[in-house]
Design a protein around this nucleic acid. Structure first.
Lengths: 224, 224
DNA sequence: ACAAAATAAATAGGAGTCCTATTTATTAAA
DNA sequence: TTTAATAAATAGGACTCCTATTTATTTTGT
C-alpha cells in the first residue's frame, strides 16, 4: 500500500525519539528555572519531590528511585541541599540504619519560587487545544502506567490508581469521572499525576478501573 | 460544575510534569544503553546526532544547540569522544575559525550498536494501541513545532515542515498524506521527526501545510 | 580599506552529577 | 545465632555543565 510501512523506523521508536527532543528542552528549561534559586536541575527535582511528599521525612532510597539514579548519587545531591540549608537529615525513629530527610522552612520558600516559573515546554503545551491537551494527558498517563507495570518507575499517585477513582460513571461526557473522596465529578482534563490525597486501590479493583479507563478513552460513543 | 476546574494545577503544567516523569525514565534508560558502549548519555547523544547529519562535518555550535547545552559543554563532550577515537575534528575549509566534526569508522560501529537497544520507554509506548501511538505522534509533533517556533529548539527535519509534504490529499483515511519525494502516500503513523531527505519548505507554504495538518488531525470527518 | 562588532571555538576554574565498588551499621531470616 | 539482606555513607574517578574570558577570524559600517 505504501512503502513507508516497510522502510521507516518503528512508530514507538520515533515516538521515543520525539519525546526525547521534548526532554532536551525540559532539561534546558530546568537549568534556567533552578539557577535563579542557586540550584541545578537535579537539586530542584530532589527538593520539590521531598517537599511534595516528605512531611514525615523521606528515605534516601526512595529519592534515588524517583530520580532514576543510583543511591550514592542521591546522597550527593541531598548533601548539596543540606549544605545549602534547604534540607535536613534526622535519624529515622523506625529504623536506625535510615535517615529521614525533610525540607527546611528556607527550602519551602525555594520550592514556592520554583513552582512559579513557567517553562517553554509548558508554554508549548499550552498552544495545543484543550481537547488535544486532554487527549495527550490520557496517553501520558497510560504510558506512565506501562512504565510502572514494567518496574521502570516507582508507583505514581495517579487518579486512575486511586481507590477513590470511579471511571466513566457520569453521562456528562465533559466530566464523566468521579472522585469519591471529594465526592465530585470531573473530566479527563482534570486527571492528576501526583495527588496528595491518593490512596492506592486494591489490585483487582485497579485492574478493573484501568479496563474501564482504557475502553472509555479510546472510542466511547459520543453520547450516553 | 466541578470544583476541579478551580482547584487543580493547570492542565499544561500537569502535562509537563507527566512528560517529566517519562523523561526521567529515558535518562535512566540512556545510561544503560550508552554504558554498554563505554559512553554516557550525553556522549551517546552527541555521537548519534553527528552520525545522523554530519557526513560533511558538524560545527560545535550546532551540536551544543541540539543538545540544549552551553557551547563549552559541547566542547567537553566532543573532546571525550575524540579521545575515545569515535569523532575527529578537522579544520573547516569554509571558515578558519570553525572545525568540522565527523564520526570515525569506529564511531559508526558504536552508533549501530546504540541503535539496536530497545529501551523501557519504547516498550512502554508499544503497549499503546496503534491508533493511540499515532495520535500521540501527532501531538508530539505539534509540541515540537511550538518549541521550534518559540526558538526553544533548533529546526527539526519534520515531514510536516518539508517541501515534499502534502497533507491530507488522499481519500484513504489510513494513508491520507503524500510524500512528493518518493511519490507515495502515507499516514499519520509514518510521520518522521528527523528525515534525512528533509528540505525545508518556504515560509508561506509551511504555514499553509501546518494549517491543513492542524485541521485534519483534530476532527476530520470519518470518511472521504 | 579599516576599526568596530560579531562569531567560532577553546580555556580556565569550579561545583556537582553520576557511576561502581566497598564499607559500616542495623534489621530480618534461617 | 550465624547468615542474609537492607540503609546509607565513602572512596575514587570520569565527565557534565556552568560563567567568564581569551584567541582567532569573519563581517560590517563608514
Amino acid at each position: 500500500m505504501t512503502p513507508f510501512d516497510a522502510l521507516s523506523t518503528p512508530l514507538a521508536r520515533r515516538l521515543r525519539d520525539g519525546l526525547d527532543r521534548i526532554c532536551t528542552v525540559m532539561r534546558a528549561d530546568q537549568w534556567g528555572v533552578a539557577e535563579e534559586s542557586g540550584l541545578n536541575p537535579t537539586q530542584a527535582h530532589v527538593l520539590t519531590f521531598v517537599a511534595g511528599r516528605g512531611a514525615t521525612g523521606m528515605r534516601v532510597r526512595s529519592i534515588a528511585d524517583h530520580l532514576g539514579v543510583a543511591q550514592p548519587t542521591a546522597t550527593d545531591s541531598i548533601g548539596a541541599l543540606v549544605r545549602k540549608g534547604l534540607l535536613t537529615k534526622v535519624a529515622d525513629p523506625e529504623d536506625a540504619r535510615a535517615v529521614a530527610i525533610r525540607v527546611t522552612p528556607a527550602g519551602h520558600d525555594v520550592v514556592r519560587g520554583l513552582g512559579l516559573a513557567i517553562t517553554s515546554a509548558e508554554r508549548a503545551l499550552e498552544t495545543l487545544s484543550m481537547k488535544e491537551q486532554s487527549t495527550l494527558l490520557g496517553l501520558v498517563i497510560k504510558t506512565i502506567r506501562a512504565l510502572q507495570q514494567a518496574g521502570a518507575i516507582p508507583p505514581q499517585r495517579l487518579c486512575v490508581s486511586c481507590r477513590y477513582f470511579r471511571a466513566y460513571v457520569h453521562d456528562d461526557e465533559d466530566i464523566p469521572h468521579h472522585c469519591a473522596l471529594v465526592d465530585a465529578p470531573f473530566g479527563g482534563r482534570h486527571l492528576r499525576l501526583d495527588c496528595p490525597e491518593h490512596e492506592q486501590a486494591e489490585p483487582e479493583a485497579l485492574d478493573a478501573a484501568w479496563k474501564v479507563f482504557d475502553r472509555g478513552a479510546d472510542d466511547l460513543p459520543m453520547s450516553t
